[in-house]
């Protein structure tokens, strides 16, 4: 093809191609999306106040821990790398166990009352709670581990049937130091002290930040039984078990704790 016809062909092809590109670059058919309604988190809080009082049965103003339907769960990555290893503590309570109360009790139930707490939905500064777990009641569903290596690794002693061991070496305690609103949700940010003796010669205390979720009060009734109210508190936090001298390589440094507490006013 001669130069002239090459130029003509080139021009023609460029015009066609350029027109195609120009037409395809218009955005006439782009969907016009409506603006988002709002990106702000909607936070609604009520004014519920829940107090334990003296735990008098039948007093609907006094809230009792429903231990049978509550739980303190732990989880950690097996060998620090694999899936979760999980367990729960069979014995726990919401009580500030004082030095005088740190002893063995010959009883099957919890020997101390679940009264060391208060919850104010709209005044978190007034909210507080103190709780404990009996370390040797950790239950992973493997008796060989729970009554075996677990006891040694946690620096405690085996369960004695009919006895509640609230001695210093067998309990881990939490004491809240500050509760405040979570600005991003309906939940609360909780600062607490975790105290655990474990393998250390003296108890170790670490300040930890966790998250508290309030499951609002609701009225329930089953069959012809009298109606009653319930509410829930879910506390989640993490701690580093190496801070408490736990050396077991079967578990990760990070231990997740989830406390699911259900209350009723029966």
């Amino acid at each position: 093809m001669k130069l002239l016809s090459n130029k003509t062909l080139m021009l023609l092809l460029l015009i066609i191609s350029g027109s195609g590109y120009i037409i395809s670059c218009t955005h006439d058919d782009d969907l016009l999306l409506p603006p988002p309604a709002s990106n702000t988190v909607v936070i609604t809080r009520g004014t519920h106040i829940h107090l334990p009082g003296t735990l008098t049965t039948g007093d609907s103003t006094q809230w009792k821990v429903d231990k049978a339907h509550s739980g303190v769960l732990w989880s950690t990555n097996y060998v620090g790398a694999a899936g979760l290893l999980t367990g729960r503590f069979n014995q726990f309570g919401i009580h500030n166990v004082t030095d005088a109360e740190k002893q063995n009790y010959i009883t099957t139930g919890q020997p101390v009352k679940d009264t060391s707490w208060a919850f104010y939905e709209n005044e978190p500064a007034k909210t507080y709670f103190n709780g404990y777990v009996q370390i040797n009641t950790s239950n992973t569903g493997e008796p060989g581990r729970d009554a075996g290596c677990n006891i040694k690794a946690m620096g405690t002693t085996l369960i004695v049937p009919g006895t509640q061991n609230l001695t210093d070496s067998n309990i881990a305690q939490i004491h809240t130091t500050k509760v405040e609103f979570d600005p991003l949700s309906n939940d609360y940010i909780v600062t607490l002290n975790l105290t655990w003796h474990g393998l250390s010669p003296t108890p170790i205390t670490q300040s930890i930040v966790g998250k508290l979720k309030y499951v609002p009060q609701a009225r329930v009734q089953f069959g012809t039984a009298a109606a009653y109210s319930v509410f829930g508190l879910q506390l989640e936090f993490q701690f580093n078990c190496r801070d408490f001298l736990v050396a077991s390589t079967s578990i990760s440094d990070k231990i997740n704790i989830e406390c699911n507490m259900n209350f009723n006013n029966k």
């Binding site: 195609g20 590109y21 037409i23 395809s24 218009t26 006439d28 058919d29």
Partner: peptide, 8 residues
């Protein structure tokens, strides 16, 4: 327009 864009 979408088909032209695809063609191009």
């Amino acid at each position: 327009a979408a088909a032209i864009r695809n063609d191009m």
